[in-house]
C-alpha cells in the first residue's frame, strides 16, 4: 500500500512534467518493411507523398496518416513533411488526377499502432509517449511544440 501511494504521488508529480516536456514523434513501420535504418524526414515525406512506394525489400509502402486537424497530424505535417496545408492540398489535387489518393487515415494513436502492426509495409507515426509495440521505429523526430498528445 505505501508503495502504491508512492507510485500515485510519483505519477501525479511526473504527469505535468512529462506533458510539459517536448514529446518526440516516432515514425513506425510494420516489421515487414525489412531492415531499414533510421530514416530522414525527407525519406519519410517521400513515402507519404507517394514518391517512394516500396521498401528496399520490395514490400509495398502503405502510409497511414492521422485525421486532418489532429495535433499529431499537424505536428507531422510541420516536422516531417515541412509543408503547409495549402501546398499539400494543391499537391494532392495534382496527384488525384494521376489516380493517386492521399494516405489512409487512422483516427487515433491506438488505431494507428494497430494498423501498422497488422498491415505489412505500413508506415505511421505516433507520439513517443506511446509504446511502439510490435512495430519498428524507423525515425524519431523531436516535436518542438511540446503538447500533450490526445489519444
Amino acid at each position: 500500500m505505501p508503495r502504491l501511494i508512492a507510485l500515485l504521488v510519483c505519477l501525479l508529480a511526473a504527469g505535468p512534467l512529462h506533458a510539459a516536456r517536448a514529446s518526440d514523434l516516432l515514425v513506425i513501420a510494420n516489421p515487414a518493411a525489412g531492415d531499414v535504418g533510421p530514416l530522414s524526414a525527407n525519406a519519410v515525406a517521400a513515402m507519404y507523398l507517394l514518391r517512394v512506394t516500396a521498401w528496399p525489400n520490395g514490400t509495398h509502402v502503405v502510409p497511414v496518416n492521422r485525421e486532418l486537424g489532429s495535433p499529431m497530424r499537424t505536428d507531422f505535417t510541420a516536422i516531417v513533411l515541412k509543408q503547409d496545408l495549402t501546398t499539400l492540398a494543391a499537391y494532392w489535387n495534382e496527384m488525384h488526377f494521376k489516380g493517386k489518393v492521399p494516405p489512409l487515415i487512422q483516427p487515433s494513436e491506438a488505431a494507428m499502432l494497430a494498423f501498422v502492426q497488422k498491415v505489412p509495409g505500413a508506415v505511421g507515426y505516433i507520439d513517443a509517449a506511446t509504446a511502439p509495440v510490435g512495430v519498428k521505429v524507423i525515425g524519431r523526430f523531436p516535436n518542438p511544440s511540446s503538447r500533450t498528445t490526445q489519444p
Binding site: P107, A111, M112, L113, A114, F115, V119
Partner: peptide
C-alpha cells in the same frame, strides 16, 4: 475507406 479500420480492429 473506413473499412481499413478493420485492420486496426476498429478501435475507434
Amino acid at each position: 475507406d473506413v473499412m481499413n479500420d478493420l485492420v486496426s480492429g476498429d478501435l475507434d
